[in-house]
Amino acid sequence: MISLRLVYLARLREAFEISGETLEIPAESPTVGDVVALLRERGAPWSYELAEGRAVRVAVNHEMAGLHTSLRTHDELAFFPPVTGG
């Protein structure tokens, strides 16, 4: 069992109506993909916003990451749409 800090930004924060949460996940070294699968099981809006093909980016501990990135306890995992600054 590991504990992760999840952060939701911009459109995803509005859709989920929370800016973040602590998630306990029953695995030793889960991947970002494992977390996404777990969140999708919650149903809408999670399943919709995190569906395959949706434009969602992921950062682990402030570094851009992918579905295969593995996670350790206390990692910060952020979900957000493609960036639009500048």
Binding site: L9, M64, V83, T84, G86
Partner: peptide
Amino acid sequence: LKTEAPFWK
């Protein structure tokens, strides 16, 4: 910056 820095409008 426009494609990498985490800003949203």
